[in-house]
Design a protein around this nucleic acid. Structure first.
Length: 188
DNA sequence: GGGCCGATTAGG
DNA sequence: CTAATCGGCCCG
């Protein structure tokens, strides 16, 4: 199993979002195969936090590529992104869905759901299943803690579509998901 | 300080 | 369809 390095995130957010599909994200005894992502660009993308938030722009400039950008949405849901920088464009990759792979009993108890498809099939579901929350904002997964990220087998078909749940720049085809996968948030 | 909005989710 | 629930940003 090949562990990805920080250099993975020193490229364009669109490339990172695409290539994260099929990788396995692990944290603290739980893990899942990434089956859905979205890219956000720090410049020129009105859906990205950097468009409105000075704090987000500051975050981009002051953290290393690969850093966790975790924020609270709708006052109750934590969403997890990887910071992407060092290439031509900077931005984030939102992790939107995982196929559960490890620590499934723990995921079930945190989620209070039995069905495998209900554990990580949404950006806020997977943070709850993995135990990711605001305290992980700014964490560096490559700084030798209990995060890991590995490349899984290739060969799955990829679908590209528009991003979910936004109103501005909603027509950009910046969402990536595994074709026919039952663990995504919204099928294409 | 007040008002508004949001990269969502579960339940009716 | 809607309630839940709160940090950031804008205004005053």
């Amino acid at each position: 199993m090949k562990i990805l390095t920080r250099e993975f995130f020193q490229r364009d957010p669109l490339i990172c979002a695409r290539e994260l599909i099929g990788c396995t994200l692990g944290f603290d005894g739980t893990a899942g195969i990434i089956v859905e992502t979205e890219a956000y660009a720090a410049k020129g993308d009105r859906a990205c936090h950097t468009w409105k938030r000075a704090g987000a722009r500051e975050f981009v400039s002051s953290h290393a590529p690969g850093t966790a950008y975790v924020y609270l949405n709708y006052g109750m849901h934590w969403l997890f992104n990887f910071l992407v920088k060092g290439g031509e464009n900077e931005g984030f990759v939102l992790i939107r869905a995982l196929e559960p792979a490890e620590g499934i009993p723990l995921m079930r108890s945190r989620r209070k759901r039995k069905q495998l498809q209900d554990l990580c099939s949404g950006p806020a579901k997977l943070t709850q299943a993995l135990g990711i929350a605001g305290r992980h904002h700014g964490c560096d997964p490559f700084a030798g803690n209990n995060w890991w990220l590995s490349k899984a087998m290739e060969g799955q078909e990829l679908i590209v579509s528009t991003r979910i749940g936004i109103t501005l720049d909603a027509d950009y085809p910046w969402r990536f998901l595994r074709k026919g996968c039952p663990f995504v948030s919204v099928p294409a």
